[in-house]
């Protein structure tokens, strides 16, 4: 598997210690945007731990994904402050607008939408993060504009006029 070649140097940075399991998985997750099965098997061999342990850790923590994620990771905050200001509705709207639905990833692999337990921006609720950008003071109307901004085949300009323009403009 050619992509596994990229795992080798990643693994080489770490000592063969159990404590490095989570940091290694984080590196793989960052590099591949998911944890390929073969990579997990290699990690298990390297650290001399059973594959079951690696698999358990990989499925326990939220920042790991065993399935390929979309090109953009959309994290909609469901912290309490966001919830009381309608974060759940924003999430639902985001799932529809991206086409990700409840499965998490849109069929065109553009977006993965995940609810997230508090981004710590409660003062600006409701918020969501797309890749590295955080958007504040959302409502349902702003979602389409934000999604379109990241979608390669939709132009932000075609956003219906009524939808209020999102507060954030990033290229």
């Amino acid at each position: 598997m050619p992509e596994m070649e990229a795992v080798k140097p990643l693994l080489a940075q770490f000592k063969d210690e159990r404590a490095n399991l989570i940091p290694i998985l984080q590196e793989i997750q960052a590099a591949f945007s998911y944890l390929p099965e073969e990579a997990l098997r290699r990690v298990a061999r390297k650290l001399h731990v059973p594959v079951t342990d690696v698999y358990q850790v990989a499925t326990f923590y939220r920042c790991f994904s065993l399935k390929p994620r979309g090109r953009h990771l959309v994290q909609v905050c469901l912290g309490t402050a966001c919830h009381v200001r309608g974060g759940d509705l924003v999430l639902e709207r985001t799932q529809t607008e991206t086409g990700a639905g409840l499965s998490g990833t849109s069929p065109d692999l553009e977006f993965t939408v995940e609810p997230v337990r508090c981004l710590g921006c409660c003062g600006l609720a409701p918020v969501m993060r797309v890749d590295r950008d955080t958007f504040a003071h959302l409502d349902q109307a702003k979602v389409r504009g934000i999604v379109n901004r990241y979608h390669p085949r939709r132009k932000p300009a075609t956003v219906d006029k009524i939808a209020a323009s999102p507060e954030k403009v990033r290229s």
């Binding site: 490095n20 989570i22 940091p23 923590y61």
Partner: peptide, 25 residues
């Protein structure tokens, strides 16, 4: 610095320790 991996329960001290040790929290 050790980075968490996304688990609320790891705020509990014994779970946090397990997490640093590379186990599930």
């Amino acid at each position: 610095v050790v980075k968490g991996a996304g688990a609320f329960v790891c705020g509990e001290e014994t779970a946090l320790i397990r997490s640093i040790e590379g186990k599930v929290g």
